[in-house]
Computed example of a mutant assay.
Amino acid sequence: MAGRKPDVTDEEIVRVLRDTSEHVLSTIEVSEQLPIKDKATIRRLKELHEEGRINGKQAGRSWVWWVNDE
C-alpha cells in the first residue's frame, strides 16, 4: 500500500535555489533535495517560474533554475 505523498511548500523549493552555492541548479539537482518525484519537481518549478518567483531557462534538453538576489 502506498504511503501519503509528501507535502513540499513553494517556500521550500525556493529555499533550495536560494541556499545553493551554485549560480543555477538543474531540475534533477533540485529534485534530489526534495522528497517528491522528478515529474512533480519540474511541474512545481515551472509553476513558480510562471508566477515570477524563480527564473529558469532551457539549456539543451534540461532546464536550469535560479533566484535573483533581492
Rank of each mutant, 00 (worst) to 15 (best):
59 A>Q: 15
29 E>M: 07
21 S>Y: 12
39 K>M: 08
3 G>V: 00
55 N>K: 14
45 L>P: 05
25 L>A: 03
28 I>Y: 12
50 E>Q: 15
11 E>F: 04
5 K>V: 08
26 S>F: 03
65 W>R: 02
66 W>S: 09
70 E>V: 09
19 D>F: 03
51 E>N: 07
18 R>I: 09
47 E>T: 05
40 A>R: 10
31 S>P: 02
22 E>A: 12
57 K>Y: 06
24 V>P: 00
62 S>G: 13
49 H>Q: 14
24 V>E: 12
42 I>R: 14
30 V>S: 03
67 V>Y: 07
48 L>M: 10
15 R>F: 08
35 P>D: 05
64 V>A: 08
59 A>E: 15
57 K>P: 03
46 K>Q: 11
17 L>T: 00
29 E>D: 07
62 S>A: 15
58 Q>R: 15
8 V>C: 01
55 N>A: 10
32 E>H: 13
52 G>H: 14
20 T>G: 02
13 I>T: 10
32 E>Y: 08
10 D>V: 00
1 M>S: 13
61 R>K: 14
58 Q>L: 06
62 S>H: 13
66 W>P: 03
15 R>W: 06
13 I>W: 00
46 K>I: 06
62 S>I: 09
31 S>H: 03
8 V>R: 03
6 P>V: 04
1 M>A: 08
47 E>Y: 07
24 V>I: 05
16 V>T: 08
40 A>E: 13
28 I>C: 04
69 D>H: 12
16 V>G: 03
51 E>W: 11
34 L>K: 00
45 L>Y: 05
58 Q>M: 10
32 E>D: 15
10 D>P: 02
38 D>T: 13
36 I>Y: 01
37 K>R: 12
28 I>R: 15
67 V>L: 09
50 E>P: 04
56 G>E: 06
54 I>Y: 05
14 V>L: 04
42 I>E: 11
16 V>Q: 00
22 E>T: 05
17 L>E: 01
32 E>W: 08
30 V>L: 02
1 M>H: 04
23 H>W: 13
26 S>L: 03
11 E>A: 13
23 H>F: 14
12 E>I: 02
9 T>V: 07
6 P>M: 00
23 H>K: 13
19 D>V: 05
24 V>S: 08
11 E>C: 06
66 W>I: 01
17 L>C: 03
